[in-house]
Computed example of a mutant assay.
Amino acid sequence: MMVKNKKSPYISLSLTILLLFTQPLMATVYDLGSVNKRLIGKNTMHTVVKGDYFQQLAEQYNVGFLALLAANPQHDPFLLKIGAQLVIPSEMLLPFITRQGIVINLPELRLYYFSPQENKVHVFPVGIGRQGLSTPLTSTVIGEKRKDPIWRPTQAMQERHFAEHGKYLAKEVPAGPNNPFGKYALRLGTSEYLIHGSNQRFGIGMRASSGCIRMYDDDIKWLFDNVPLNTKVRVINQPVKMSYENGEKQLIEIHQPLTDLDVTKNNVILTKAMHRFVGSTREYWQQLLPIIEKPHGLVVELAK
C-alpha cells in the first residue's frame, strides 16, 4: 500500500519563516501625525547570528547599505561577530519639505512617498548616482511608467565603457535578467533619468548608478502599482535635518554630505539654519562635533 508523503506543518512554518528572511521587506510605512511632528520610526537592535552580513541585513530590514554601515562603524560589514548588537537605522526626521508626492533626499539615500489619501509616508532605500555622475537636483513629475523596460545605454555610457573596458555595450538590452533597469521604471518628467529596479542586489542604499535612482524590485513594483502619472517628484540635498519635537526636544540628524553637490563638511557647521537651531550652548556643540566629523545618520537629541 502506498502512503502519501504529507508535509509536516513544522516544515511549512520553517519554510515560511525562511522566505520572510530571504526576501526584502516592503517599504516601511509611518503615520505622520500632526504637521509639526517630524520624527518617525524607531531604531531596532539586531543580534548577529551565524551567516549574517551587512548586505543581507540591509535587504532583510529594507534599509540602505551605507546607512547600516554608518550606524555601525565599529563592525566589519563582512565579518560580523556572532552575538554582536547592530543598530537598524529606522528612526528618522522628515526632510524640511511639503508633504506631497515623492521626495528623494540624496545624502540619506532615501525615497519618501506621501500618500495623498492617508496621513502616511512610505520610506524606501535607494541607490543614486556615483561620484562624478550625480543624480541631479530637480522638481518634476512622474512623466512615464514602463513595465519590462528596454535598456538603451546613452552615448556617454558607451564612451565611458569603451574607455574602461575597450569595447562598447550592446545598443539595447531587452527585458530579462540582464537588464539593469529590472522589471519596472518611472521616468522623471521627460528626462533620461528614471526611478527603476535593478538586476543586482548590491547597490541599493549606495552611490552606484550613472545618475538614475535604483530600488529593490519589490519596492519599485509597489511604486509602479500605487503612484499615478504626474505625481510630483522632488530630488533634494538635505544632509542635516532638525526638529523641535513637541516644542521641547531638540533633535538633529546628520548624514555624509555629497561633496560634488557643492556641500562640504565645513558648510554643515556653517549653515545659518543649523547655527540658529543649535544656538550657542557649548555642550550641544561638543556633542555634535564628533558627529559632524563622522556622520552616522542617526537621530540625536541635544542634551546638556
Score class of each variant (00 low, 15 high):
T271P: 05
N237L: 07
K81T: 08
T44I: 15
W151E: 03
F277W: 00
E253F: 05
L106W: 01
L57A: 03
T140W: 00
L13H: 06
T28Q: 13
P95V: 01
N267V: 07
Y53Q: 12
V173T: 15
K294D: 13
T135V: 02
S280E: 13
L15C: 12
G297H: 01
A273R: 09
I195G: 08
S198R: 03
I82F: 09
K272W: 05
K265R: 14
T28H: 11
K147I: 13
N266A: 13
L94E: 01
A58Q: 07
H75P: 08
D31T: 06
R282I: 15
T28Y: 01
R152E: 08
Y53D: 12
N105G: 04
P77C: 02
H275I: 15
K42L: 11
L133F: 13
D260G: 04
E91H: 04
H161G: 09
V227Y: 05
V300T: 13
L111P: 08
Q74K: 06
E192G: 14
K183V: 04
Q287C: 03
K232H: 13
L223W: 06
V173R: 09
N62W: 03
N230P: 07
E248C: 03
P239L: 01
T98G: 06
G129L: 00
Q74W: 03
V227T: 07
K294Q: 14
R187F: 07
K145Q: 08
E159M: 10
I104N: 06
Q85T: 11
P295K: 00
K37Y: 01
T154C: 11
M92H: 05
Q200P: 12
N178P: 07
V121P: 09
H75A: 08
K272A: 12
Q286S: 09
L261P: 11
L188M: 15
V121Q: 04
N179D: 06
V299S: 06
L94N: 00
E159S: 09
I269S: 11
T44P: 06
Q256E: 13
I88Y: 04
